[in-house]
Design a protein around this nucleic acid. Structure first.
Lengths: 231, 231
DNA sequence: AGCCGATTTTTTGCATTCATTTTTTGAGAA
DNA sequence: TTCTCAAAAAATGAATGCAAAAAATCGGCT
């Protein structure tokens, strides 16, 4: 008797719109979301049985999913000792932010090579929308626009491999991004806005190398804010 | 990581697999090597049973390994239709080279922040060695040194996450690198040497942003050579 | 003869089972 | 009490078994 379907509660506006083509490819994304959303304690042991019950499947497909997530770096898989949610050390965070910075720098460089005026205009529009949120001190809307702009730049790079890699790393720090909230980010709102102005300016001029530098530095500054938050 | 040779039942001549970090995650690396080395026809269907016999294991661990490799992008996993070695289209190759370029650019930038004089000296030494191979037209030695330099820069970045990501992508294009040989690369030997001079110069001056640009462009040129090869 | 559809065979996906390994529990001694 | 050690319980890693889906084979038809 086959299982009807792993009851995956409809994810709330997940930023990864990857269509789960395969049914148990879907399990991987479901499990990933489950972990990213913080349903599992950090570093705690994850008994397979528990997750099996949770998702209504047997251990075989679950273990396959766990192996994949371990390869992604989201969890640790200790031999004979089960799976644990990977704890992100300060060092891990530093590394992840830098890699994200490198990927965004690349995205900016590539985007300058091929972005259309229409796409630039679209980003500009979102930028202005973000500015309005900034003026009104509306944190949430600002954050949404911010994310959208970065995503648009990555998409404008026209490199599916880059997009996938970027999404993967973004997922890994999303947990931290949410928990260590943006309280500190607030202190550098003005700075961040200026940086975004510079980003847009470089993008308009299709100054790839320059944009690359700006984006990396932008992420560096974000990193500093996030690190200050942790401490 | 040990290679579980095609027969792990009788473990007499098992030359100490050494404290393998994980037991049959070694299977993943073994399978990866098996594929990268081209033992499987491109795009050909891969019956699980065949690989099970080949590696002397049952289907369960094999399928786990396949899922991981599929997540890495090395193979395609069609629902109910088995695994296939992923064929790299020209588009895939373009994307991969650009991502590699972005990662190297990042590595260069980070390396400039923290590399020691001793490490620079080590790279310089390898560079000179490479130059001697270049003068003698010894392709193989040149290539080895080349690879070593790039690897040293990545390591000098001091970012384990970056190193792992870089290694993963390097693995994905290795197959192509081997097949589409460096015949064409020969034509731009002089150019490549000049680029490497510039890389070393920027590294000496710790000019991160500049080195970043040079490395990306360097990979771009490599890409052009590789693409010309395919055609 | 060639093409199409049904039946057989193979293969995949998942559940279940088995053997180790690890963890927990409990009894006894210092 | 607490420490140690052994036995029990549970969890993991891997093999096998079974139902569904694909592929292959064979028989029937135009």
């Amino acid at each position: 008797m086959q299982i009807p379907a792993p009851e995956m509660h409809d994810a709330p506006a997940n930023t990864t719109p990857k269509a789960a083509v395969s049914l148990h490819d879907g399990l991987v994304t479901a499990l990933r979301d489950y972990i990213v959303e913080g349903n599992l304690a950090d570093g705690a042991r994850i008994p397979e049985r528990l997750l099996c019950d949770r998702f209504g499947i047997s251990r075989t497909p679950l273990r396959e999913a766990l192996k994949v997530l371990a390869a992604e770096g989201l969890i640790d898989l200790l031999p004979n000792r089960g799976a644990r949610v990977r704890e992100l050390s300060a060092e891990d965070l530093r590394e992840l932010f830098d890699v994200m910075g490198g990927l965004e720098a690349l995205a900016g460089r590539l985007a300058c090579e091929r972005i259309s005026d229409a796409e630039v205009a679209e980003i500009e529009q979102t930028h202005h929308e973000m500015y309005r949120f900034y003026l009104r001190r509306e944190m949430h809307g600002y954050f949404q626009c911010n994310q959208a702009i970065h995503r648009m730049i990555v998409e404008a790079a026209g490199n599916a491999t880059l997009s996938a890699t970027y999404a993967s790393f973004a997922g890994r720090i999303r947990r931290v991004r949410y928990s260590a909230n943006l309280a500190k980010e607030r202190d550098r709102w003005g700075e961040a806005m200026r940086e975004h102005e510079a980003i847009l300016d470089a993008l308009r001029r299709r100054a790839g190398s320059e944009l690359s530098d700006i984006l990396f530095q932008h992420l560096r500054n974000k990193r500093k804010a996030a690190q200050a938050e942790v401490a």
